[in-house]
């Protein structure tokens, strides 16, 4: 059996704090009572392995829409492996990602007040399956930074890409964000810095792939491994 069958609560310092003083939404939506401890049973260590039958995959190229013109901005190649806590590849697993366009605007109705221009050639979202090595890859555009509207502290989100990851169980489901190396705004971002542990923050920043190591010459490459919960306990006897 290669599927992880042991799942535990997160190690706290590696995960973000829940309430962030200057992030108002976190104060309005976080429960006021601490969560209850519960035993982990079969429902939490299983999950949908047939998602690709429900969700359309193969949407790896965000650089254009329906073979139309190239989106504005600088091409990037974002790749990495999806691993469990044993470092084993998670194969055939759905990865979703979404991001702002090169000007820092999302193709979403919640971003309709953003004065930055919309790019008709950029939808900014994709979905794929990991391969036998657990690898995913997307061709996209470097997202722009953007100011959080009406924020007293002049908070700018650094360039980032959102990831939605399923893994092999309810407890391996993960929503996260990937940051770019060397961005000055990373040091001031309220969300990235909500992760107390420096090593944890480093795990959210992609690594630049030197040009000669990249399989293509038309994009700047970034490597970003993703780790979801789950490891193998002693054999269960089934």
């Amino acid at each position: 059996m290669t599927t992880p069958n042991f799942f535990e609560a997160y190690d706290e310092p590696s995960q973000p704090v829940i309430r962030i003083a200057q992030y108002r939404e976190s104060l309005l939506r976080s429960p006021s009572r601490p969560p209850y401890k519960r035993p982990v049973t079969l429902t939490e260590i299983t999950g949908p392995l047939n998602l690709a039958r429900k969700l359309k995959t193969g949407m790896n190229d965000l650089s254009r829409v329906n073979n139309g013109a190239r989106a504005m901005g600088q091409l990037i190649w974002v790749t990495g492996r999806l691993l469990d806590e044993d470092g084993m590849p998670v194969r055939g697993s759905v990865i979703e990602l979404w991001q702002a366009n090169a000007a820092g605007r999302y193709a979403h109705k919640a971003d309709s007040q953003n004065p930055a221009p919309h790019d008709p050639n950029f939808l900014g979202s994709g979905r794929c399956l990991t391969d036998q090595e657990g690898r995913y890859a997307f061709l996209s555009i470097k997202p722009g930074a953007y100011p959080v509207p009406n924020h007293a502290a002049r908070w700018w989100r650094p360039p980032h890409i959102h990831f939605s990851i399923f893994g092999e169980g309810f407890m391996s489901r993960l929503i996260t964000q990937m940051y770019f190396p060397g961005e000055p705004l990373n040091a001031a971002d309220l969300l990235l810095n909500a992760v107390p542990d420096e090593k944890g923050r480093e795990r959210l920043v992609a690594k630049w792939i030197p040009m000669m190591q990249l399989e293509r010459a038309d994009a700047v490459g970034f490597e970003h491994d993703l780790v979801v919960r789950g490891h193998r306990a002693t054999p269960m006897g089934f």
Partner: peptide
């Protein structure tokens, strides 16, 4: 059993999860 990797930190989904990701 020693765990080799630490899970990637979670983040908010934010307000912009694509509408087209919700299938009928």
């Amino acid at each position: 059993m020693v765990k080799k990797r630490t899970p990637t930190p979670s983040h908010t989904v934010g307000p912009f999860f694509p509408a087209r990701f919700f299938g009928e």
